[in-house]
Every structure is written in C-alpha cells, then in structure tokens.
C-alpha cells in the first residue's frame, strides 16, 4: 500500500480519534529507553544433549519434570508443559543436538497480533505474557512463524505458555536458568549486539567448524535467540524459508490503509447519496 509513515500520521490528524486504530502498527526494532535487547546465543556445535537446560527450565518455571531424551528421527515437540526441549538430528557431521524455545523476535508477530497487549515485547527484550489481559483468542499462536506459544486446552482457566527468557530472573539480576546451568557453555546470555559480535568472531576464527550463517540474525526480522551450527540449518529442523523482514510488516499495509478508508468512505458515500437523491427527485418530478 503506497502510504508512508508521514502521510499516515497526517491522515491520523485529519480523522481524529476513530482513526487511532491503525496507530503504532509495529514494535520498534529497539526500545524507547535506549537499553539494548538481551538474547541468547546457542552454539549447536557445543551442545552435548545432556538436557540440563530442560531440567533447569522446568524447575525455574515450576513445570512438571520432563520425560524422554533426544533421539535422531524422533522430534519431541514443545508443549504447554515444556518451554524448551533438546532434539537430536543425524547429519553429515554426526549427531547434532538442537535446543528449541521461543526466539524472542525483535518485532514479534505474537505481540503485534495480541489485541490486548497481553503478549508483549518487554523493554529488556524477552517476549512475555500477561494473564490479566489475555482473552485466550490464540491469535498469537496463529501468527507466530516459529509456532511457539502453547495453549492449555484442558483447563477452564487456560494460560498461554512459552519461554519467557526467565524474565523474572532477569529482573532479579540473574540470567536465564538454561544459560546459567549449561555445563557445555553452549548457551550464552548477553545483549543481542554482543552476541552477534561473538557469533561472528567464532565463525571467523573457526571457518572449518561453522557454516557462515547466524540463524536469527535476519530471520523474521531478527530474533533475540541466535544459533550457530556446523551444518546448514535446514538439516537441523530450522525453517530456513522464513522471510527476512518482520512478520508484523505483513499486516502493516492493511492497518495503514484503515485511516484512509475511514476518511474517504463516508465522504464518498455521502456524495453518492446526495448525487442519487437529486436524480430520484428529478425522475419523480418528470413522472
């Protein structure tokens, strides 16, 4: 839709309060207070599949103890009681373990989808959920390209469940439970900029070990969780065909068009009404 931000706000001014609907269509890539988003760098070449992160996650989030262990060819999915799982993949470089959890997108589709701002991107970076606001519509689940938010279908008071990057621990000055407890140092916590820097350094210093791709640097407009790998990511269960721009971008055009319709339509309809009303009077006079 051929309308830029400037003309959008001009229209907004013209149309008044009813038009506030299209406002703030997107989460910004960085936050207002100038604090950098935090994230995690997961190095799949270091992961040994010990599942310590799973146990730490369950304990920290008061979830049931997890069952099963990573086996190649058998994908253990995330669900409402598992915020992170480790899966194994058979590759040309042997068995590789991949930890999966919320990607904490810089411009999160789930947050843009939420009509009550229950799901939201915090100023620090984690994407978290607020039960007091959520109406349980599950539009976040429809929108998330990584299919992360999970819903408690068998509860009368259901919650949306997903990894929060241990936001409560971050507030206390701690780091996420999985990153703190990883014995293989496969999970590094830090600001997104530091992590990208570190990831690039590892690729440059060990070109034989890593493929030249940081998953999450550009995918879905950039994510808070970044991955390194020794084999192409599509062999590790990653969706590599995700668009490079953010997902909220997809409905931006529509939302920016809303104010124009709200201004133009009533005027047009009133004009049509006046025009055809005269016709009607004329024909009845002629009769």
């Amino acid at each position: 839709m051929g309308i830029d931000r400037r003309s959008f706000f001009q229209l907004l001014g013209v149309a008044g309060t009813t038009l506030a609907l299209g406002k703030q269509a997107l989460a910004k890539p960085s936050n207002d207070i100038g604090v950098e988003f935090v994230g995690m760098l997961i190095d799949t070449t270091r992961c040994v599949g010990c599942q310590t992160c799973e146990a730490a996650c369950s304990e920290s989030n008061h979830l049931a103890e997890q069952t099963g262990s990573p086996e190649p060819g058998k994908i253990r999915p995330l669900d409402e009681t598992k915020f992170t799982v480790v899966n194994a993949y058979n590759t040309s470089k042997g068995e590789i373990y991949v930890k999966k959890q919320c990607m904490h997108c810089s411009q999160a589709a789930c947050a843009a989808a939420c009509l009550t701002k229950a799901m939201h991107k915090t100023e620090e970076g984690p994407v978290v959920w607020d039960g007091k606001k959520c109406m349980g519509c599950r539009y976040c689940m429809v929108s998330c390209p990584f299919e992360i938010p999970k819903f408690e279908y068998h509860s009368a008071n259901p919650k949306i469940q997903k990894c929060t990057m241990c936001f409560e621990r971050l507030v206390e000055g701690k780091i996420p439970a999985c990153a703190e407890n990883c014995p293989a140092e496969a999970i590094q916590f830090g600001t997104r900029r530091e992590l990208l820097h570190e990831a690039r350094k590892r690729i440059v210093e060990n070109p034989d070990v890593y493929v030249d791709h940081i998953y999450g640097e550009h995918e879905a407009g950039g994510t808070g969780v970044l991955y390194l790998s020794s084999v192409p990511f599509n062999g590790l269960g990653f969706n590599t065909s995700l668009q490079k721009s953010s997902y909220p971008e997809l409905s931006k055009g529509f939302l920016y068009g809303v104010p124009s319709v709200f201004v133009l339509w009533p005027a047009l309809l009133l004009g049509l009404y006046e025009a055809t009303k005269d016709n009607h009077v004329k024909t009845t006079e002629n009769e």
Binding site: A20, A112, C114, T116, K117, K133, Y139
Partner: peptide, 17 residues
C-alpha cells in the same frame, strides 16, 4: 477478559483482531 480491548486498559492497536 473480552472487555479488555474495549474499555481501554490495554489497546493492542497493532493487531488486526
């Protein structure tokens, strides 16, 4: 919580929904 987006304590204006 269906009333939340209506009464104005949490306007998710970036949402098509």
């Amino acid at each position: 919580n269906v009333i939340n987006p209506i009464i104005g304590n949490s306007f998710g204006t970036s949402s098509v929904l």
